[in-house]
Amino acid sequence: STYTFCYLGYFIAGYLIHSGYFSKKQEDLLIVIGFVMFFIQVLLISCGKGLNLDMNSSTGPIVFFYSVGLFTLVKRIMGKINLSSKFSVIFKTMASTSLGIYIIHPLFIRLFDKFFSVNEMSLLHIYIFPFMVYIVCMMLVLLIKRIPGGKYIFP
């Protein structure tokens, strides 16, 4: 669907960052651009203009670039942290659900929007729904993986 296609850039950028495609210097630039975009976002919201701009939507360039910068920064930090085996198992389990979450998350965003009667520019949609959608989708993917044949639906 068109809704899912809009998020293809996130999937491609995430794959490139995860696979080590970018040099350290390029990753530094992505992090800096991410911080700049975040501060532009905060400035636009504080001026009352941020929630009305198309470029500021979840598929717009401001949100895209600060998401890419944040992912790059988190990847770098996590590479330097030595986690206990218990946390490693938890993070590995969570990471194994990312493709399934990517596939089904647009459905849950729409369901939550309808259920809570909010639009895409609502503060609830922007700040709370990502956590709700992630948790619900992760639980659903893990549940489906446990049923026979489920691992073929969400590898």
Rank of each mutant, 00 (worst) to 15 (best):
K80M: 11
G9K: 12
T59A: 14
S98N: 05
F5M: 06
I90E: 01
K80R: 14
R76C: 05
F154N: 09
S23D: 11
K114R: 05
Y127C: 10
I104M: 12
F71H: 03
C47V: 05
P130L: 01
I40Q: 09
V141F: 08
Q41W: 15
Q41H: 15
Y15K: 06
V89S: 09
M55K: 08
G34Q: 06
G14N: 07
M121L: 10
T72L: 07
Y21P: 03
I135R: 01
I31P: 05
M132P: 01
F65R: 06
Y7Q: 07
K86L: 11
K92C: 07
Y152E: 13
I33M: 04
S19H: 08
H105F: 04
K24C: 03
L44S: 12
Y134K: 00
L111Y: 08
Y7V: 02
L140S: 13
V68T: 10
S117G: 01
T4D: 00
L16M: 12
V89K: 13
L123V: 13
K114E: 03
S67A: 13
E120W: 07
I45R: 13
I103N: 01
K151G: 12
D54K: 12
L73W: 07
K80V: 01
L107F: 15
T4I: 06
L99D: 03
V74A: 11
N82D: 10
V74P: 04
I90M: 08
I109C: 12
Y21D: 03
I31W: 04
I101A: 06
Y7G: 01
H125M: 06
V133W: 02
S67N: 09
S23Y: 07
F108M: 11
A13N: 01
Y10T: 09
T4C: 01
D54L: 14
M55W: 14
F38C: 14
S88E: 15
I128K: 00
T4S: 10
S1Y: 02
R76H: 11
L30K: 02
S85Y: 10
I144Y: 06
K25M: 09
C137K: 08
P106F: 04
G34K: 05
M55C: 13
V133E: 04
P106E: 09
I103H: 00
M121F: 14
F116A: 04
L73R: 01
F115E: 00
M78L: 15
L43V: 02
V36Q: 01
M94N: 07
K75N: 15
V141W: 10
Y10N: 05
I90F: 07
L30I: 05
I135E: 04
L140P: 07
S117R: 08
H125E: 03
I104Y: 02
Y15E: 02
G79S: 07
I31D: 04
S122N: 15
T97E: 08
A95N: 09
L99S: 14
I104S: 03
M132S: 06
